[in-house]
Amino acid sequence: MKTNFKKIAVDGVVKQNPTLKLVLGTCPTLALTTLAMNGIGMGLAVTFVLICSNVLVSLLRKAIPSQVRIPAFVLIIATFVTIVRLVLEKFMPDLYDSLGLYLPLIVVNCVILARAESFASKNPVLASAADGLFMGLGFTVALTLMGAVREILGAGAIFGVKLWDFQIAFFASSAGAFFTYAIFIAIFCLIENIISKNKKRKEFALATAYTSSNTEVK
């Protein structure tokens, strides 16, 4: 069947945004969104690993019997993350320093196994790669926005640049992380509801306009 990439793209970033809609990968989201820089770093690392693990999983999906799918997927993901960590440490030390902290965290990130289990194990390679890419992008965008908000409110700075020294310690704390995350999901659902309603109305108006104009012609 033709995989329409537009649907996967919209799903990945908006309709099924892993952080805001499916609420997966909450551990790193809560822990790391104290700084916007972390959001980007973590997001890119996860995107990179997500794409490759989706490709690997969908390549092997027929070879892995369903009884042992979880250990097999987890093994693939863990191996892949370790390889990335070793390669980065050797050849790109500065990138490793900025990402170094997040790479072990990725192994424990639920988004990757969730996508491997629910999408990559059922779809061809190209679709899985696209899904990995857009899921990763959705994850990065959500994390960076949350990181920015928490950094501005919690530390009075953005990307490390000091804006003002008015700081609300609540947002830097973990309870604040929960709170910010809740507000983000609420706003996201609100906007998404409004958009989907208008889209349905427009589609319907288009459909009825077509049928009515067609009856007048007869």
Binding site: S174, A175, A182
Partner: peptide, 23 residues
Amino acid sequence: IAKPLKGFPIAMICACFIAMAFY
């Protein structure tokens, strides 16, 4: 509760209070 707050958001806010309690 307000419609957008239903589901996960309100769960998060509960978790926020539990976190404070356990703090």
